[in-house]
Simulated scan of single mutants.
Amino acid sequence: MPPSLPQVPPPASLADAPGRTALDLAPPQAIVVLAAGRDPVALLRGLCALAVQRNTDGLFLAAGAFGVVLVPNGPAATVEGALDSLGPSLPFPVRVTPPVPAGDWALRAGLDAALGWGGPEAVLLTTEAGAVPEARWVARAVAALAAGRLDAVLGQVVPPAGTAASDAAARYAAALAAMAALIDPDPADAEPGDAAHGQAAAASFAIRGAVLRSLGGLPIGPEGGLAGLLAALHRRDGRIRHLEGMRVEASQPPQAIEPAMAAWRRLRARRAVRGFWTAGIGVFERETAEFRRWAARLGLSAGALGAALSASRFGEAWAAVSAASPVLADRSWLPHSALPREILRARLLLAAARLVAPAAARPAASPASPA
């Protein structure tokens, strides 16, 4: 895939761009999946934001540089009215799926349609009708995934400008991501010197078509949705990055949060398990006293921990440990209203993590002692 999308000088107006019919001839190299929702005004706003996308240098993208899959998950009139209003002025081809229920089913249907249209070489992006992507949103996702070094990228979701919406959830996600970078860093998750933003929302997400196909599409069910897709990628040691600058403006519904102390314990446990798995302790190498202490702390026998670590990928091993450990499986999340308190705790824990960072930098074969 080329490292950037084709671009042209900015047209005098959107009406100067070719219509959808002329563009719908060849598979686009990037396809945006957009759940239509119930508000025609919000859908129009999102489509117009996509119509003025630029490349990373600021030039307008060429007509047909990417396509859009619209998923009607509300009244049919919402989609029909939006497309009738914009007519042939949209500089990208649009395909509309059959109506589907809202939620994960809509996302699955849209991604399936996008994969069938663009094939495994395409970059598939997802957003929602209420979101307004920034001008370089598509280009930044394509550039990040073009070289094949990453499997998926997660963009940022910021409150709409001029509203009183709080960004507390985003600040908390960034604090937990900074904690992870100190305790058990993921080398794929950020460029050197950058801090991952930590957000994970279908309003700003992109994945390579070949990766989605290999996973069998978006999982559906209690453990499905975007979280299930990311979990499946993590199990196979997928390369996922929280991408700075890939932003959309959107209002996000309040969601439950992982307590800061639980995140601290989970990250320390993951680092220890990673060290044991890397060294083959409990599988190919003899159990150590440290190994047995961690097994007890996780509520497992040494044999059960060793069995979980026999997986060929670390992601599979960590998933097995997380499922077997009663300590890790008991994830009692907190309501959104707990954010102010948990942000303070996360900052205190982050300061503590910075103090013990030299210990966290020890060789992987010598995991940190249980806290």
Score class of each variant (00 low, 15 high):
residue 4 S to Y: 13
residue 7 Q to L: 08
residue 9 P to D: 11
residue 10 P to L: 06
residue 16 D to Y: 04
residue 18 P to I: 05
residue 37 G to T: 13
residue 48 C to H: 13
residue 52 V to S: 08
residue 53 Q to N: 07
residue 58 G to T: 11
residue 60 F to W: 14
residue 68 V to L: 09
residue 78 T to S: 03
residue 81 G to Q: 07
residue 89 S to T: 14
residue 98 P to N: 08
residue 102 A to T: 10
residue 103 G to W: 09
residue 107 L to H: 02
residue 109 A to R: 06
residue 113 A to T: 04
residue 131 A to M: 09
residue 132 V to Q: 08
residue 136 R to K: 08
residue 140 R to Q: 12
residue 142 V to E: 06
residue 158 V to R: 14
residue 164 A to H: 10
residue 166 S to L: 11
residue 168 A to S: 06
residue 169 A to C: 08
residue 173 A to E: 15
residue 175 A to Y: 11
residue 175 A to K: 09
residue 185 P to F: 07
residue 186 D to L: 09
residue 209 G to A: 11
residue 213 R to M: 15
residue 239 R to V: 04
residue 241 R to A: 12
residue 243 L to E: 13
residue 246 M to R: 04
residue 248 V to K: 11
residue 264 W to V: 07
residue 265 R to T: 12
residue 265 R to S: 12
residue 271 R to W: 06
residue 280 G to V: 12
residue 281 I to D: 04
residue 282 G to E: 13
residue 283 V to Q: 13
residue 295 A to R: 03
residue 296 A to M: 06
residue 300 L to M: 10
residue 301 S to L: 00
residue 305 L to A: 09
residue 307 A to R: 15
residue 308 A to G: 08
residue 309 L to W: 11
residue 310 S to N: 13
residue 317 A to E: 10
residue 318 W to D: 02
residue 321 V to F: 10
residue 323 A to D: 14
residue 323 A to H: 13
residue 340 P to K: 05
residue 345 R to Q: 15
residue 346 A to G: 12
residue 354 R to T: 07
residue 356 V to G: 00
residue 358 P to T: 09
residue 364 A to I: 07
residue 364 A to L: 15
residue 371 A to M: 09
